[in-house]
């Protein structure tokens, strides 16, 4: 975490949103899918190690697999990237909450 958690969270959240929203949708290959899917699975694995996976990530991974199985690699890559972005957001949440949870505590 940086010295200023507000700036850090704002910048990472904005980057995640922009990255997911502006991914190019040029024709994708099976190899593109495999690369994107592996990255998403790795990020989701990290979230799992932090005990903070999201059901939305699992749904996006399943959608990616389904699209790839039907030969729609554009959709498969897009869903994989969405899954990766969601997983990264869940990692950010878990790491931020290691200290931020105390702010909600009744005292």
């Amino acid at each position: 975490m940086t010295a200023n958690p507000r700036k850090f969270i704002l910048s990472v959240a904005s980057a995640l949103l922009l990255a997911a929203a502006t991914q190019a949708s040029a024709a994708s290959s099976q190899a593109d899918f495999r690369t994107a899917y592996a990255a998403a699975e790795a990020a989701n694995g990290q979230a799992g190690a932090l005990r903070n996976q999201w059901t939305a990530t699992a749904a996006a991974l399943a959608a990616a697999k389904k699209a790839a199985d039907s030969g729609d690699f554009d959709q498969a890559v897009a869903a994989s990237r969405e899954a990766e972005a969601l997983a990264k957001a869940s990692i950010l949440q878990a790491t931020s909450e290691k200290t931020l949870w105390k702010n909600l505590e009744i005292r």
Binding site: N4, P5, R6, K7, F8, I9, L10, A13, S14, L16, L17, A20, A21, Q23, A56, A60, A78, R81, E82, A85, L86, A89, L92, Q93, S96, T99, L100, K102, N103, E105, R107
Partner: peptide, 28 residues
């Protein structure tokens, strides 16, 4: 765009959290 819509709740919530955090942290 679909990705952006799916991520929006988390991003908005995390952003709000980020805005509120420093003031609250100082209290505790």
């Amino acid at each position: 765009m679909r990705s952006a819509i799916h991520l929006a709740p988390a991003v908005v919530a995390l952003t709000i959290l980020g805005l509120a955090a420093p003031k609250l942290a100082a209290l505790h």
